[in-house]
Amino acid sequence: MRSNAASYQKDNYKIEYRQPEWKKRFVPSKIPRYLPGQVKKVVLLKDLKLFNEHRYKIFTAKPKIDCKPPHMPKARLLRLDKLNNDYYALKKISDENKKLMIKINTINRLHGLTVCFNPRANLHTTRWPAYEQKLKQIQVDNLKVYKRIMAKTSNYNTKLLNKQWKNNYERMTKQARFPFSIEVNKSLDAVLSEKPSISVIPISYSVRDAALRPRVFMEFSVQDYLPLGKIVFELYRDVVPKSVDKFLHKIDNIERKTFIETSFYKIIPQEYCEIGDHPRNIKKVNSIFRDSFPQENFALQHSRPGVLSLVPTESGTNNIQFSITFEEYRAFDGNRVVIGKMIQGYKNLLKIQDFGKKVGKPRYRVYIKNCGMASGHAINMRNTIFNNQ
């Protein structure tokens, strides 16, 4: 066995590299290519001999071209100067680690005083929970103050003040030389009542027959418990009776499958808002919006704010999902069945509008906290609905 040796001397250290040379040796095969008993033994040995001769020819074959690896200049490829620098850098790191291990060993044996806690290490993670708890406490305190303010009553005799004002107003009206008038700011509901009607068909409506125009209310909240106020709607049962009956069934359902806890999934400022299950959740078993029914008619129009209409499905039917317009929105005429209009709570509707975005997704969760029939309409309408089903 021969070997090649290469060595060089650096800093009184002599390094040698040895690489042994070995020669290939042919080993004939002893395993025949036929299975035992498949052929006679003479044929088996003859075939094994021919196979080994073929393998030997391949083993001893020499190439007709130069297939040796190219010459590798070690000095240029190995870069001994870089290797030496790495060697000294690693040696320095090793010496520092040894010193550190000696100090750690000394501390473990002698139990020296060590201060390894950094109070500012997790400051960014520990400060936020306290700040979040502080915000929640502020919210609870604000709610308590709000309830106390709402529970307070005036210390003045309001009936007496109103009577005195009425007498003073009549006296000033009689004594004035010119027509006397006082400018009074109208409420938003009064402004809403002056808007155009949603119906272009003259309908004879009697106040005594409240079943033709039932009224329902909805109380809205944002997030967990912050109230937004109540909105009252008047439903046109004399124009779209079937759609209104379906809607009233979800308003005051004895099985408690109502609109309560139902959220807005689209609020577009200056246009409209939609409430109900998101279209991708309607097919769920527990959804109250699964049952669909055909569209009734398009006799009523979206000619004012606060128009209540049903949102159509992809198949052209309705499923009690409804929308409320913030302004006059004629684009829905002929596409959505209008079932009523808002008569009270315009200010609260504008509050809901403030939680919307141009893309439609609400900034916070706005949902129905409570709903039902308005006073004076509950008993009659409940009997009317269930008798017609």
Score class of each variant (00 low, 15 high):
K230H: 01
P20K: 08
T325P: 02
I275K: 02
K195E: 05
P294H: 01
K10R: 13
R18M: 04
I324V: 11
N167Y: 11
F233K: 01
I107F: 07
E234M: 06
D252S: 14
V191P: 06
K152R: 15
D11I: 13
N281T: 03
D141K: 06
K64N: 10
M342F: 08
H302G: 00
A211W: 02
K92Y: 14
L248P: 00
V191E: 15
G360Y: 02
Q175E: 15
K41W: 06
S206R: 02
V145E: 03
I198D: 06
N85L: 10
Y146L: 10
Q301T: 06
D47H: 09
Y88S: 15
T317G: 08
E327G: 04
K40T: 15
K14G: 03
L310E: 00
Q301Y: 05
K57Y: 05
L83V: 08
N380P: 07
I201H: 11
H249K: 13
L228R: 00
A151K: 12
K351Y: 14
N185M: 14
E314I: 14
I275S: 01
I65K: 14
L212Q: 07
S287A: 00
F217C: 02
P305D: 06
R55W: 03
Q9C: 12
L83A: 12
F355V: 00
Y34F: 11
E96C: 08
F233G: 01
H71E: 07
I102F: 04
K46S: 08
P36W: 07
G360K: 01
R76F: 12
K283G: 06
E328P: 04
S292L: 01
Y131Q: 12
K369Y: 06
M373D: 02
R256V: 04
I231H: 03
D291C: 01
Y146S: 07
G276S: 04
Y225P: 02
Y13S: 12
L161F: 14
F332P: 02
V27R: 11
R215C: 10
F178Y: 15
V184W: 08
Y346M: 12
H278F: 13
S375T: 12
S287P: 02
I260N: 03
Q353K: 04
Y34C: 07
M1H: 12
R280K: 12
E255T: 10
L226T: 13
I107H: 05
K92E: 10
K99P: 08
C116N: 15
N122Y: 15
L226F: 11
R382L: 08
K242D: 14
K163A: 07
V359H: 11
D224A: 11
R25N: 09
V43A: 09
F59H: 07
R237D: 04
C116L: 15
M381I: 09
F326D: 01
L248D: 00
